[in-house]
Design a protein around this nucleic acid. Sequence first.
DNA 1: GGCAGATCGATGACATGTCAACGAAAGCGT
DNA 2: ACGCTTTCGTTGACATGTCATCGATCTGCC
Lengths: 162, 162
Amino acid sequence: MDTPRWLDAREDRAWRGYRRMRRLLDLELARELTQDAGLSEADYDVLSDLSETPQGRLRLRELADRMLWSRSRLSHHLTRMQQRGLVTREECADDARGSVVALTPAGRQAIESAAPGHVAAVRRHLIDLLTPAEVDALGALTHRVVDHLGGRAPRPRHDAEV
Amino acid sequence: MDTPRWLDAREDRAWRGYRRMRRLLDLELARELTQDAGLSEADYDVLSDLSETPQGRLRLRELADRMLWSRSRLSHHLTRMQQRGLVTREECADDARGSVVALTPAGRQAIESAAPGHVAAVRRHLIDLLTPAEVDALGALTHRVVDHLGGRAPRPRHDAEV
DNA sequence: GGCAGATCGATGACATGTCAACGAAAGCGT
DNA sequence: ACGCTTTCGTTGACATGTCATCGATCTGCC
């Protein structure tokens, strides 16, 4: 591959637009979330994933995989959230090395009061700006890319296979 | 707004897909970039923006605005890049408080040798997975969102207007 | 049973990003 | 020329993310 295939004008426009949107959307959503609910996006995602489970509790491993976070990151983050009273750690019955994260009442309260505003922000700054066709296209295209990248946890491996 | 308008199935699919793609794409592109060129995405973006200017140099302010970075972040990052010999800081002729970032030969070398592989990765994991219509749709939709969010630097202000 | 290797989660050192504050220098109105 | 305000970039304290490592436990195989 001597001569790389650079992006043509349309591709470049899509790529730059994507990166810029990403950044601006992040900034704005994070700003509103902090202001309105006192949560970071990371906090919100953790609480949101937990609240989607029947018991409001998940194995640490399971949660890390769903969020595509490293276990280390999750562990550190949970320590901070625990100190704020949003979650607790419980021992895991069937696996003595593991533990379970659980929503506290305060955590459930936090996500339930934050969610409407956050969803509204997502609508205001993204979804409601798109035509139905664009929503579908975005859904199709993102899922295709996700599948291609192996939606499965691309967990960093420690072993270097021969 | 008592009853929030939740996302319907299609919207939810688009939103979740977007977030997941974002994360996976980031991880993969960063991984390849580090491995192939020894650069982080942040490094790449800085070098890339600089190399797009005629002189390979920019006011710090200007660069920060283009990248939607805080000046603090840029300043810290440049310090690190400077230590690695990728850029230098020069005094600014027409404004004694400012300075100018400039690509070093090593910096130019770094971006020029990293770019083909990076573009190829962007193609492989995103662009080439899309139909031409999807590329156009992505371009249109992202730019609309960017405009809506005020593409202009939403610089954090220190003043709280009444 | 018992050992070898994998997995789980925690931890500490370090890299990176954010935030508030600062000194220096411009801009601006008078 | 003089102050008042803004802008520029840096800095240090702190929040957050990454990476390597660890002890404990589980799993599979003998």
